[in-house]
Design a binder for these strands. Structure first.
Lengths: 228, 228
DNA sequence: CGAACAGTTGAAGACGATCAATCTGAGTGG
DNA sequence: CCACTCAGATTGATCGTCTTCAACTGTTCG
């Protein structure tokens, strides 16, 4: 949920993702390198040297962390416009895998660093996005700590519906590019619990499972059963 | 867990908290305003206009969020050197309360913003600290999602022991300024569960409750029962 | 056509929350 | 100095939710 930057502060954002002025845009593109990915493409592993910062142009990327005992936590899904791969200690702490066909832009960390130092307003955008990311994570901590499985799944679905990428408001169809274990590991519950939660929501006529990766969603009803 | 900044990049840090060069230090002090606080002092409430950024000089500050149903999540404890109160949307999302007698420095958001824009390296320090904060929160998410109550309490104790503020390595005594409900709401468990977990650790001779706010800690044994 | 795998559903068990009772310690007034 | 009080902490017993294990279904791919 991090987006890029613009030169002049205080100018209104046209889209939700934030406007990018030509000069910033071109400066970024000048140091960027595009990659086409397909489902399963590994962008980086935890422990790798953190050489690049990534940005999703299209597709979905899963950020996950493997634990010593073999368990896995999915920390985020990154959609179009999102930035990932910012590591503080010189090494990536997490894995990044493409879930979908898509296009990723990546920037050498040192060169991006230089660019940010030479463009304070652009760096400020990054800083603002980082603080926004912190707030989002705090939301997630609250969700994990205080709510039951059904509510977690509802929150997850709402988050997905917020993405034009995978939710079509006209047809009310949500396309989920990730597997049930991905969802389960994202919400910190068992795969079976996700299934059961979806079952509950379907019985309540809030969703309808067209197939495993396509849900029809009654968005208003989904929203008011969140109570967040 | 955010600290301040220095002018020249790449220079080694003297303390863990990061060195601050005189010019940055003085520039910050010029726009700063010191406040003395006592236990219970409210720095800000969720929903307040986010006018200031805060930094702890001494003492401990609790960052918490109240939910609609009356439950509360403690999101962080801020110790000496930590920064808090960075809000993306113009309003604080959380509450900040002093737990201890101490001294807080605060900066008007707009003036700090100006200062950061005029000092790219200083802003870069903030950005780095923000990404470090994101990593810490990811750790917290994993902790909340995957581990049992005892492990959570162990992780909490280790976090506290990392602070020279409250842990004396010589005497092995940890001084906890927060109450049991604070700890419970921080780890997302019930108060009773914290008590029981401390009981377990005491029976295992890993800690000894001198009184409610003072624990004798066998740090090596505590460390290897973490398994994180 | 059959194997392998993802997803779903069912039954049993474990862990932690909740409720209630007891204990501890600090502050107060006799 | 000691009993009293009150809040916070601890302990015990019960209950509910979610995990785990296992069986079953449906889909995809050789």
């Amino acid at each position: 949920m991090v987006c890029l930057c613009d030169d002049a502060p205080g100018q209104p954002e046209e889209q939700g993702r934030g406007a990018v002025t030509p000069s910033d845009q071109t400066a970024l593109m000048a140091i960027g390198e595009a990659m086409d990915v397909r489902p399963g493409t590994k962008l980086f592993r935890q422990g790798d040297a953190a050489t690049h910062i990534y940005m999703v142009e299209s597709g979905v990327v899963r950020i996950s962390h493997d634990l010593l005992d073999g368990k896995r936590q999915v920390l985020a899904f990154r959609w179009g416009g999102d930035v990932f791969g910012m590591a503080a200690g010189g090494r990536y702490l997490n894995n990044a895998d493409a879930l979908d066909k898509g296009r990723i832009q990546r920037f050498q960390a040192e060169r991006l660093q230089e660019l940010l130092l030479s463009r304070p307003h652009m760096q400020n955008r990054f800083l603002l996005q980082a603080t926004a990311e912190i707030s989002l994570q705090q939301h997630r901590i609250i969700l994990m700590a205080k709510y039951d499985v059904v509510t977690k799944v509802v929150a997850f679905l709402l988050e997905c519906c917020g993405n034009g990428q995978c939710f079509d408001p006209a047809t009310q169809i949500l396309k989920l590019p990730m597997s049930r274990p991905d969802i389960a590991d994202y919400m910190g519950v068992a795969t079976e619990s996700v299934s059961r939660a979806l079952g509950v929501l379907e019985r309540r006529k809030i969703i309808h499972r067209h197939d495993m990766h396509h849900l029809a969603i009654d968005l208003p009803r989904l929203r008011d059963c969140a109570r967040l």
